[in-house]
Design a protein around this nucleic acid. Structure first.
Length: 480
DNA sequence: TGAAATGTTGGGGCG
DNA sequence: ACGCCCCAACATTTC
């Protein structure tokens, strides 16, 4: 008997419960459906960087499986057709947790069940289901620390190995669309031309990354993770988003490492807590579906956001005149990734210095990050804005100069992404606008020509941001 | 998972 | 020798 395995955000063979179940039942027909264009009205479209990643991840999956039927369209129409055409009565998948995906899966499941088709779904991407963890009072956690304490207490079962797989080649051959038919890759221009040397999408790439991080980047992670000029970060986020590796596999690996090398305990536990933020965000979006589009704290609706296309554009392209901000935005544009510390800074800058609504940043990150993830993106933007659950207080405003000096003390990160500043002395590399004229001249910097002047003054912008916050406080006290 | 403003303390210069 | 002032250095408060 053949089972259809509908792959979604679980593009791996190991520790994949739906695939494991299908393999136990007999032969499998692996399927991927790209929801494109108008079929997912309720959702943000998949960003261009994510699409690039998906192309390569699907290619890797197809190779590993020995075949993968790909489709483009609305799964609520396509899946019943696939079941009928292939004459199979069983379908399995691993659950997705985004609000629109939940609705989609519910209705597909109901429709298929009406057709007499057996549907089974599994958890492949979370340590615990969002409904499996509760506060004392029975509700979902809204604060990270107690959430993490609670999550850390749970003992997890060991990840499963790749099962013996037998594909239903006869059925598979009926579906001959190729991955390139999905048109996931950029063409004019091919801005991702160099990305394949930097990223290795797919399950093998994910495990190679975990291994490399474990041996080269983990030691010192607890403190060095804040340093964008170092390589003490895992870079596993895109692999996790597409389910090329499971959090359970990572947890297990970290527990083994810290057991073998107790000196690593601080670093592994810090790393795992970062992974727990991913769980926390996914749970938050599950329990509060509006997190992606609306302020979680409604009093933030009163904030006097500005509209300024020039400022938004300057932020997006990394020409704000603040080197640390610009370095981050250029890293993002050029590589599809940004260091976490710099994500916080650039987000803070958009929201607080430019006073542009967080949804602009949310949309830009969704389009440009290879690890774009609705839950992480929404929870994190609202965290920075101060409008989210367990959020950073609004008045916590990063100083882009101090953040640069603190976390990029030699200016190496800035020099890398803003090469026009590379000859500048470390004293001024984070604040070229404060440098004496002859210092700038010696470094070949002409402010306003080779590198932009600041779009806003930090001190002025800070005061203005705080003033805007008054409206939020008033809205809050009005509602109480 | 900040920064700036404000407050406090204590050593040293100096009349 | 003493008090006064200045101002780092550190602590606390405020945004």
């Amino acid at each position: 008997m053949t089972t259809v395995v509908w792959f979604r955000q679980d593009l791996r063979l190991a520790d994949n419960p739906a695939l494991l179940q299908a393999a136990h039942q007999g032969t499998i027909l692996p399927v991927y459906i790209l929801e494109d264009g108008t079929t997912v009205a309720a959702r943000e479209p998949m960003g261009a960087a994510s699409r690039w990643w998906l192309h390569h991840s699907l290619t890797a999956l197809q190779r590993a499986l020995g075949g993968l039927a790909v489709f483009r369209g609305d799964p609520s129409e396509l899946l019943p057709e696939i079941m009928t055409m292939s004459g199979t009565n069983d379908v399995v998948w691993n659950r997705c947790y985004e609000p629109a995906a939940i609705e989609r899966d519910k209705s597909i499941k109901a429709g298929l069940s009406d057709q007499g088709i057996q549907v089974e779904s599994f958890n492949a991407s979370l340590l615990l289901e969002p409904w499996q963890i509760k506060t004392q009072s029975g509700g979902p956690f809204k604060v990270f620390t107690p959430f993490w304490r609670s999550l850390a207490k749970v003992t997890h079962t060991a990840p499963t190995k790749v099962p013996k797989l037998a594909l239903d080649k006869a059925q598979l051959s009926k579906f001959d669309a190729s991955i390139s038919d999905l048109k996931l890759l950029p063409t004019h221009p091919d801005w991702a031309a160099g990305w394949k040397t930097k990223w290795k999408p797919g399950e093998k790439g994910a495990h190679a990354r975990l291994k490399a991080f474990s041996s080269d980047g983990l030691k010192g992670y607890a403190t060095l993770r804040d340093r964008p000029d170092k390589e003490n970060i895992s870079r596993l986020s895109p692999h996790l988003h597409f389910g090329e590796i499971s959090p359970r596999q990572i947890f297990t690996k970290m527990h083994h490492l810290s057991a073998a090398q107790p000196a690593l305990a601080q670093d592994t536990s810090k790393f795992l807590s970062e992974l727990a933020w991913r769980e926390f965000s996914t749970h938050l979006l599950f329990h509060f579906p509006k997190l992606a589009t609306e302020n979680w704290r409604p009093e933030f609706d009163a904030y006097p956001w500005r509209t300024n296309k020039k400022h938004l554009r300057a932020w997006q392209r990394g020409i704000t005149g603040y080197p640390m901000v610009d370095a981050g935005m250029r890293e993002l544009w050029q590589t599809g990734f940004m260091h976490n510390r710099v994500r916080m800074l650039t987000a803070s800058f958009l929201i607080k210095h430019l006073r542009l609504h967080w949804r602009h940043g949310h949309a830009w990150f969704n389009d440009t990050l290879v690890d774009a993830d609705l839950a992480n993106n929404s929870a994190s933007w609202q965290w920075v804005a101060g409008s989210g659950a367990d959020a950073s207080p609004y008045f916590r405003i990063f100083n882009p100069i101090l953040q640069g000096q603190k976390f990029d003390p030699d200016g190496a990160y800035v020099r890398r992404w803003c090469p026009e500043l590379s000859a500048l002395d470390v004293k001024y590399v984070h604040c070229p606008f404060d440098a004496p004229d002859d210092t700038l001249k010696d470094a070949g910097v002409a402010l306003g020509v080779t590198y932009p002047k600041p779009v806003v003054d930090h001190g002025v912008a800070r005061v203005a941001a705080l003033a805007g916050y008054k409206a939020v406080q008033h809205a809050r006290s009005d509602s109480i």
